[in-house]
Design a protein around this nucleic acid. Structure first.
Lengths: 223, 223
DNA sequence: ACAATAGTGTCTCTTAGACAATATCGA
DNA sequence: TCGATATTGTCTAAGAGACACTATTGT
């Protein structure tokens, strides 16, 4: 009566060389054995309390990563997306700084630039594109991109992250005003060093905003 | 290996007496037989091409309704939300004018005001609240509420719909400017009649925007 | 001192809300 | 004509982008 194949997949995104990259793993079983695909797998009804737990478990088991930001993207369903039959994939997406992936140093992890993808197994290309669209859109009016930088960062660094994600420049003054208005960032007393110019002042996300998102009433415009 | 119960539920919303209502049906089988719950059921792998098809099929079979706007809300999962075991419900939401429900005249349909709900089966209360939040939020920056009115409507009528959905007044001039800027509404040459005041001019959604959403760069403020 | 980038002050322009004038209906 | 509501014009205020000025570093 209910022969639906029900899985969970995770789109783990990061910023590398100012470009969005996605974590892919080489599949170790059929179908599509040997091909690069999203981390994912079956729900373990005995150990996962819900699908979010399953996503966290897969992220940790398959990439050695724990992400403070993990959100459900959408569920992709259909009779034809999986050669084994009618399937539903509950997809989550997560954002982490590149160093988190580097430090995990998981041997199976491949970082691939999101706009150089083609020929993915299943509908994973469509899934990744959907996730990237969501992230880009959400970045225009929220603090989402702060999950792509480490604990300490300067405002110009953060602005470059926003610009890399959204793919367009942002007005510097507006950016600082918006970040200030969000009220989630505080200055530290540390400064950049080593560069032949005025050093930036390091900031961090306020304690009470860790793991949360702030949204602004209006999106960024061009800069 | 995969004993997940996988279902589809639909939150069908409408506006009645200027308040959001949801369509509920009396369950005809266990669990929770006899209680009011969201229309839903199992995916039919043989007739549904994807979960959206399943949602449309259920809406038609159980409420006699075809909704031009139907969107995936979220998938609700967990070991405890269904007494039968670990389950995943792919939830869609839809918006239709009240007359569509009235004309369908389906005997099982119950229209219940969304903020008078309590004691729903499963996590249906949580699902409905999530859907209502989504609709309210989306209404602040998009044309979503036009799906709650019929084909012909005046701008003051539409404004009242927006205000009913969002629960707060909107500035009249701003509202008209925004609607004009969306460019999806056109005036007809018909006018209201029968009221002891200047009649409103009827509008309709332009042909090319039927079934689509328009979004504005910035949300409504208070009015 | 110079080049380069960080951080700030301020002007202008857009746009939203307030307010009010005008328009049109039935009684 | 009056009361009620639709529609439009315009003023004001808030906020965003442009621009340029000041600040601070290494060379």
């Amino acid at each position: 009566m209910n022969s639906i194949i029900c899985t969970v997949d995770v789109v783990l995104l990061t910023l590398k060389n100012s470009a969005l990259h996605v974590v892919l793993l080489k599949r170790d079983r059929e179908p599509f054995a040997g091909e690069l695909a999203l981390p994912g797998g079956f729900i373990h009804a005995d150990e996962d309390q819900d699908a979010g737990d399953a996503a966290r478990r897969m992220l940790l088991a398959k990439a050695g990563i724990t992400s403070p930001y993990l959100e459900q993207l959408e569920t992709f369903t259909g009779a034809k997306r999986d050669p084994r039959g009618w399937s539903a994939s509950i997809v989550y997406y997560a954002l982490v700084p590149e160093e988190v992936i580097v430090q995990a140093a998981h041997p199976d992890v491949h970082l691939v630039q999101v706009d150089s993808l083609s020929n993915m197994p299943f509908d994973h290309l469509h899934i990744i594109n959907t996730a990237v669209s969501r992230v880009r859109n959400k970045s225009t009016y929220s603090s989402l991109p702060v999950y792509l930088v480490g604990e300490k960062f300067t405002l110009p660094q953060l602005q470059k992250v926003y610009e890399a994600v959204m793919g367009e420049p942002i007005n510097k003054v507006s950016f600082r005003r918006k970040m200030d208005a969000l009220g989630m960032i505080e200055l530290t007393d540390e400064y950049e060093t080593g560069k032949p110019n005025r050093p930036g002042q390091f900031c961090r996300v306020k304690e009470e905003f860790r793991g949360a998102l702030s949204t602004m009433g209006r999106a960024f415009n061009a800069g």
